[in-house]
């Protein structure tokens, strides 16, 4: 058997689970994703970034998407390879219009307590997209180059 230093199709670990809208229910999934990243050699900085994105997107799905209704569910699909982490979180809500959300970076909002979850996701992840309805977020993280 021969091995190459860089396989064109690195192995991908995948998890796909659905949870009721209760805080803490997805914590074991988050732990599993972070453990996979660590095992594959991702940096502490990138593991933190994905941790933040998972926490914030799950929190948004529960709080803003499903309005904390435990009868409603959210689904998390996540794949992890050496080169890419991809996360999709979908809730049962009606979605939201991002242009109507006050920008917490504006001077008049800078000391307003809420509205920073989405900002943190965008800041920490490489790519972030929403579906048209606004109830599904897809996020990707590539390894941060060593400085």
């Amino acid at each position: 058997m021969t091995t190459t230093a860089e396989s064109p199709n690195p192995p991908v670990w995948k998890i796909d689970r659905t949870f009721p809208s209760v805080f803490g229910k997805a914590s074991s999934l988050i732990d599993e994703v972070l453990a996979q990243m660590t095992a594959l050699g991702w940096s502490n900085r990138d593991v933190f970034a994905v941790n933040m994105a998972l926490e914030e997107s799950v929190s948004n799905a529960i709080e803003h998407g499903n309005h904390g209704n435990p009868k409603k569910h959210f689904r998390v699909i996540c794949t992890v390879s050496e080169k890419l982490v991809s996360i999709q979180v979908r809730d049962e809500g009606k979605g939201f219009r991002r242009d109507l959300v006050p920008n917490p970076l504006d001077d008049e909002n800078i000391e307003t307590p809420s509205g920073r979850g989405t900002l943190l996701i965008r800041g920490f992840m490489t790519r972030v997209n929403y579906n048209d309805a606004g109830n599904e977020i897809t996020m990707e993280k590539e390894p941060t180059p060593a400085s």
Partner: peptide, 16 residues
């Protein structure tokens, strides 16, 4: 720590 400081910078809370 540096990771959390990044969150403060992203949200501009390092200026608050």
């Amino acid at each position: 720590n540096d990771n959390i400081m990044e969150a403060f910078k992203i949200t501009r809370l390092d200026s608050v």
